[in-house]
Design a protein around this nucleic acid. Structure first.
Lengths: 254, 254
DNA sequence: AAGTGGTCTAGACCACCGG
DNA sequence: CGGTGGTCTAGACCACTTC
């Protein structure tokens, strides 16, 4: 990266800072190591703290750093691969599904989910909350929306609460024949509730995976909206049909 | 969502601002409409411009707004769905592939790509640049890495330049038998080069899709690194096997 | 030239975590 | 309690687009 300030390149300071820091992370720091605090880093680079923070924010977005209030800034491990697209399609909660049921409520879904389900906007559905933990860290939170029509044999509403009820809904789902599914991935920001569960601040970047599950009759039997921590996760769509979560040392290609 | 300021919930101003603006966008603004400028909005809400900008940044990240220097802030259309996972797996450049070849160079890949390819870190590969345009807007830029061993019958190095050479490499790829592929999606920030092509500023959030293509012998024959504009794209992994880009009115479910 | 969003500054205070 | 990152301010100047 030689000197080339002679071109029409008034490179922003934070961008240059990010590059310098990124190279320093590669060569001079080990995973888990804590960096000097923001005030000292800013002084060392001769910039305002806000400018230094702009660079740190980018590096955190790229999964290179992890910042925690009251603690400090540490060098993040490489992103973990999380398998979300498997060849063997199965209902959520099938054998080997690593998601952990948390609880289950019954209420009206958001307008967007209602549209995907094809149900009326006022019609209540079962909403199963599940979470995905990998390497001791919560990496994703899911809201699984199941219309009552999909689980007709569900025991009465009072059939337990919390995780027990969630498991009951998932068990009933297995009785349906799954015909296919449909996935979309987009960038979002964590709602306050998800942020708490993912140990992030509200608004943290997340990858939102929306999955529609179809029955043999072609109807949408359930819709899952899963939010993955964008800073620590790389979603993998292997053809290998393996649900296992694996942690590897591959870095973002670029 | 009643009033609950009595709890220990000192909600940040920018977060509240974002909520207010978001609701205003839903009810009072049409797609494409320009908002008042930042200085006026900040004054109207009684906050500093930096705080107002923090809210706008979040909304832009969520694909609700589009900001352009020298122009203004406009209400963004819903994200377009871009199909990236198709049941009928095919080599890049196959019939119906909407990607447009731009040019082709021959150089050493990044360390990360070299690892995926299984080639030596110094070994040069063909790097085909392609771009994806939808609705008159560039939505993605791709670097397709093809080791020389994958296209042995390629005419001499001087066989054209630019798009012509890119097409030649793609044509040769079709002669190989494709056995499978492997995808990963993660959040990244646009390199300066990608940012220019995507009409964004450097560092803009992008969805990075890394695809490995395998030959029947199990070797990695090519690696594609595609960066999609995270603000305007929703990646779809339909089982329908349709490469078409469709624009629909679905909003992020949340 | 005028107006927009993008960058940068030098401060201040707050919420959170640890000892 | 001290130290950390998170929020917020009130300015300034710059790069870009449009007229």
């Amino acid at each position: 990266m030689g000197t080339r300030q002679l071109e029409t390149v008034p490179e922003p300071k934070y961008w240059h800072l990010k590059t310098v820091l990124s190279e320093a992370l590669d060569s001079e720091f080990a995973v888990g190591e804590i960096l000097p605090n923001e005030r000292e880093l800013a002084a060392r680079f001769g910039v305002a703290r806000a400018t230094l923070r702009q660079a740190l924010e980018q590096l955190e977005l790229e999964g290179r750093l992890q910042r925690r209030r009251g603690v400090g800034t540490t060098v993040a491990p490489p992103r973990m691969g999380v398998a979300v697209g498997t060849a063997e399609q199965a209902w959520p909660g099938a054998a080997g599904d690593p998601w952990q049921p948390v609880d289950c409520t019954e209420s009206a879904p958001s307008a967007a989910v209602a549209r995907l389900l094809g149900t009326g906007p006022e019609e209540a559905v079962h909403i199963v909350r599940r979470s995905l933990v990998a390497h001791g860290q919560a990496v994703a939170a899911e809201l699984l929306h199941v219309p009552a029509a999909s689980v007709p044999a569900l025991p009465g509403i009072a059939a337990g609460a919390g995780a027990a009820r969630a498991r009951a809904v998932l068990r009933e789902l297995q009785h349906l024949e799954l015909d296919g599914q449909d996935r979309a991935v987009e960038l979002g920001s964590a709602r306050a509730e998800d942020a708490r569960e993912l140990d992030r601040l509200p608004g943290a970047p997340v990858l939102v995976v929306t999955t529609r599950y179809f029955t043999a009759s072609g109807a949408t039997a359930a819709v899952s909206v899963a939010t993955y921590r964008a800073d620590t996760c790389r979603l993998t769509f292997d053809a290998s049909g393996d649900l296992a979560i694996h942690h590897d040392e591959e870095r973002q290609a670029s």
